[in-house]
Structure formats: C-alpha cells, structure tokens
Simulated scan of single mutants.
Amino acid sequence: MSTVHALRGPALLFCPGNRPERFAKAAAAADTVILDLEDAVGPDGKDAARDAVVAALSELDPAATLVRINAPGSRWHDDDVAALAAHPDVAVMLPMATRAGDVTALAPRPVVALCETARGVLAAPEIADAPNCTGLMWGSEDLVADLGGRPGRAPGGGYRPAVEQARTRILYAARAAGITPVDTVLVAIDDLDTLRLDSAAAVASGYAAKACIHPKQVTVVREAFLPTDDEVADAREVLAAAGEHAGGVFRLHGRMIDAPVLAHAREVLRQAGADDPHASEAVT
C-alpha cells in the first residue's frame, strides 16, 4: 500500500505545458493542476514546454501539482525525468503505464499511473501496488483506440460494457492498494450535462477524483463530489446516535447501523469538510 503524496481532489485540471501564462490560473482554479508535457504538446514543442514547466515548479505548490511526462519508451521520456530531478517532491503522471516496473523506475518520486491501454488495464492491480504509486487513473479515449472499438459512450449515457469494465477495474485496483482512484476526462468540453452524470456515477462508484480539461468543468466536478445537505445531516445524525451507544450494532429510524455505515458517515463528513463531533465516541 502506498503512503506517498496524498493526491488532492476532487478536481484535477490539465494545462498544456507550452502555455506557461496559464499555469498559475489553472493551479488556482483546480484542486490539483496537471502540467502536461504529453498529448497537449506537439513533437516540435516538447523541449520548450519542458523548460517552461520546470521553471514554473518553484512557484507552484508541489502538493497540488502533477507533471504528466511522456510515456516510457518515447524519445522524450528520459529527458522529462532528468529535467525534474531538481524537484523530487513533485509527483508525475505516467501515461501509457503497462507494468509496475514503469512506476518503480521513477521511485522514490510519487507517481499517478494512467492506464489507457488493454495491457495497462489488465496490469492495474500490479501497477497500483508499486510502492511509489499514489494514484491510478484510466484514459477512455486512448483505451477505445487501443481496443479497436467504436466510440465508447453508450447510446443512453455512460460507457459501453467493455469500457465500463475498465473503469471498474481501475477503481478496484486503486482502492485495494489504498491509493487515489481518478476518473477519466470528458473531451466534450461544453457538454456539462454529461459531465454531471459522469461525475455522479464516479462518486457513487467510489472514485475520489476526476480529471478535467477545461476550467469550466472544475465547478461541475466539485459540486458532484460534494455531499448534499441531506447527506451531511444524515451522517451527523448517525454519528451522534452512535455516540449514545456503548458499542455494537443499533437501530436508527428502522435502519441497522453498524461499522460500515459509520465509516460511510465519517467519509461523508470528510468530503464535506465537516468534523465528526462524536469521533472519539463513535462505534468502530
């Protein structure tokens, strides 16, 4: 289980590495900014983007910054890694991760592994168990291309079964390893309705964060991940009732309250930024 670099969420925002004038604004807009040296930058701009990102790192909060480097085996990967040597506390996002060795090769630097191929999805449990892996994300667009399928969206919303299976596998692998699961981006920037549905599904499944490609998506993601007032009130009531019992299972409004229910209530309050006033008394 990884113990490195607690990834800040729920909204992660990609920012092109060749647009340094946007770095500070993107960092201010999101919970974590991802300075992108990979897909957002063409081959002729890689060196300049790398220089710009490295120059900006001393001005950004390392706990809220990721750098997406180029994939292992690409001609830019080693130069990206070498350029970041002066900033060992900055975590990287590793695209096209297909094996645990891709992650451990960067140790002790914290890594968010991006699984976006069939091989990467199948290897997700082993990748997540790498000691310096702090998060696991899946990439829908590259995955669909790798599978050779048609667009991965289902006609009624959500994803087609083969793609949804990958989404679930990444979630299980991350949670089993005790690291942060990050849901994929939605490339339709202006389709905020679909983004709300995707974000709600991610929250309901157990994802802790979602990646964005435009600042307008950040607010939608944050709202989806924030518990409702009713959920917070219910969590408070459950934990307050637990404080009045000596231990074990009890009944509240016809519902059985046990350790998993209490754990969920505490997580709701954590997500809402609220304290559990009965934490020391609650049943565990």
Score class of each variant (00 low, 15 high):
residue 8 R to K: 14
residue 12 L to Y: 08
residue 15 C to G: 07
residue 15 C to F: 00
residue 16 P to L: 02
residue 20 P to S: 09
residue 24 A to G: 06
residue 32 T to S: 14
residue 33 V to H: 14
residue 43 P to Y: 04
residue 53 V to L: 04
residue 55 A to W: 00
residue 55 A to T: 07
residue 56 A to G: 05
residue 56 A to D: 01
residue 57 L to R: 02
residue 57 L to A: 08
residue 60 L to A: 07
residue 62 P to F: 01
residue 64 A to I: 00
residue 69 I to W: 00
residue 69 I to S: 03
residue 71 A to N: 06
residue 83 A to W: 00
residue 87 H to M: 01
residue 90 V to E: 08
residue 92 V to W: 03
residue 102 D to N: 12
residue 102 D to A: 13
residue 111 V to T: 06
residue 111 V to K: 10
residue 120 G to D: 10
residue 127 I to E: 11
residue 134 T to Q: 06
residue 137 M to S: 04
residue 140 S to C: 14
residue 140 S to Y: 10
residue 158 G to A: 11
residue 162 A to R: 13
residue 164 E to S: 09
residue 166 A to I: 01
residue 167 R to I: 00
residue 172 Y to N: 04
residue 173 A to I: 02
residue 177 A to Y: 13
residue 180 T to G: 05
residue 189 I to P: 01
residue 190 D to A: 15
residue 191 D to F: 03
residue 200 A to I: 00
residue 205 S to D: 09
residue 206 G to F: 09
residue 213 I to H: 07
residue 214 H to S: 14
residue 221 V to C: 10
residue 223 E to T: 04
residue 229 D to W: 00
residue 229 D to Q: 13
residue 238 V to S: 10
residue 240 A to R: 15
residue 241 A to Q: 09
residue 243 G to I: 09
residue 248 G to C: 08
residue 260 P to N: 13
residue 265 A to P: 09
residue 269 L to G: 06
residue 269 L to C: 05
residue 270 R to E: 11
residue 284 T to W: 07
